[in-house]
Design a binder for these strands. Structure first.
Lengths: 190, 190
DNA sequence: TTGTAAAACGGAACAGCGCTCCATATAATG
DNA sequence: CATTATATGGAGCGCTGTTCCGTTTTACAA
């Protein structure tokens, strides 16, 4: 077991991470690895050494934001008027996250070949949070009880794919429709 | 203008079409072109001669089914009890189509680079039909009036991507949620 | 300070893809 | 049957992701 890695290794990991973040913003999350390597001034071998699959790199870049989104769930639950409101607010956060990262939603699901790690990480972090909000809202009779957290997250993710260059499609509005459907046809009063 | 093409050309077009249909069923619509060529016993040049882009090939394979779906719209409008019911029935047809063609939904939207022809064809055929149903339903106050036909079709298409190998996600149920949301919170009675 | 082994690096190399291009083969025509 | 327009096949190009290994750099002990 190595208590400390070499200095150049740590330095390069940061360099690659920063370069990847920059490239992702301009070219989307499936930018060529060579582009990231060039931007970082580093060989491709170095990237693959630190991040065995592209999914690992994406995870590393967005880990903080995913964690923040996960942490916001419980917070919203206590600060909102109802569990349903908390769920709605949390979904808004999730959608904002997906919409602002070009191509992330498309890669979030997709083939289980590569991106397995990415898929797994998102699910591991967010499904429990979503389930908590969903259960609380369902317990209060605010939403349908026949939709699972995984299913809801994937549905929302799917609605957010390919949103670039198309003004006629508003992912947020579609998610709004989905959430409205989740409420069922129950009356708004008690 | 050529009144008749050479016999081998027409024969090969059919051969390629059949091979593509067969390969699409087993390997999805983004199977390697080389695989289709091999299956057809034909060189790749031949495929690209008849179908300049992969999108053209996909269109040719599914044209009949898309046309049938388009034709079903007006028919449902006259045979259904309400325009809203017609819309719901038509959406079911559309979803069935997307769900049974592996990878079609994923390719239906996506980058406007290639697949432009595919995107355009689907839209040209189906948006007017959907708009007609949508307008009729909106006129009767059955559905919200602030969602366009293009937007609805893309939303449904998006919900149908990546449905393979995942029992926890039911695209049909998600579309059902979206449609329920489209109904708004209006009462079911007059 | 210097020598040495382990760690990390860079990028050539390989495989798989879409697509083009043109020498060759084939069908229609007089 | 000869001629010519048409169609074919697949080598080849450029672009991907990913691996692999000779070279360079670091850390540490002497």
């Amino acid at each position: 077991m190595s208590p400390r890695r070499r200095a150049d290794a740590r330095r390069n990991e940061r360099t690659v991470l920063d370069a990847a973040a920059a490239v992702f913003v301009t070219s989307g999350v499936d930018a060529p690895v060579r582009a990231i390597a060039a931007r970082a001034g580093v060989g491709m071998g170095t990237i693959y050494r630190h991040f065995p699959t592209r999914a690992d790199l994406i995870i590393a870049v967005y880990r903080h934001q995913v964690d923040a989104c996960a942490a916001a769930g419980p917070a919203l639950l206590v600060s909102s008027s109802t569990p349903g409101a908390a769920l709605a607010g949390w979904v808004d956060l999730f959608v904002d996250f997906l919409v602002t990262k070009h191509g992330l939603a498309a890669v979030l699901q997709a083939d289980r070949g590569r991106f397995e790690a990415l898929h797994g990480y998102f699910l591991a972090r967010l499904v429990p949070v979503c389930a908590q909000l969903l259960d609380a809202a369902a317990a209060g009779g605010e939403v349908r009880a026949d939709v699972g957290a995984y299913e809801l997250l994937r549905g929302i993710g799917n609605l957010c794919v390919g949103i670039d260059h198309d003004a006629r499609y508003d992912a947020r509005r579609m998610v709004g429709l989905l959430m409205a459907g989740l409420l069922g046809s129950r009356p708004t009063s008690v």
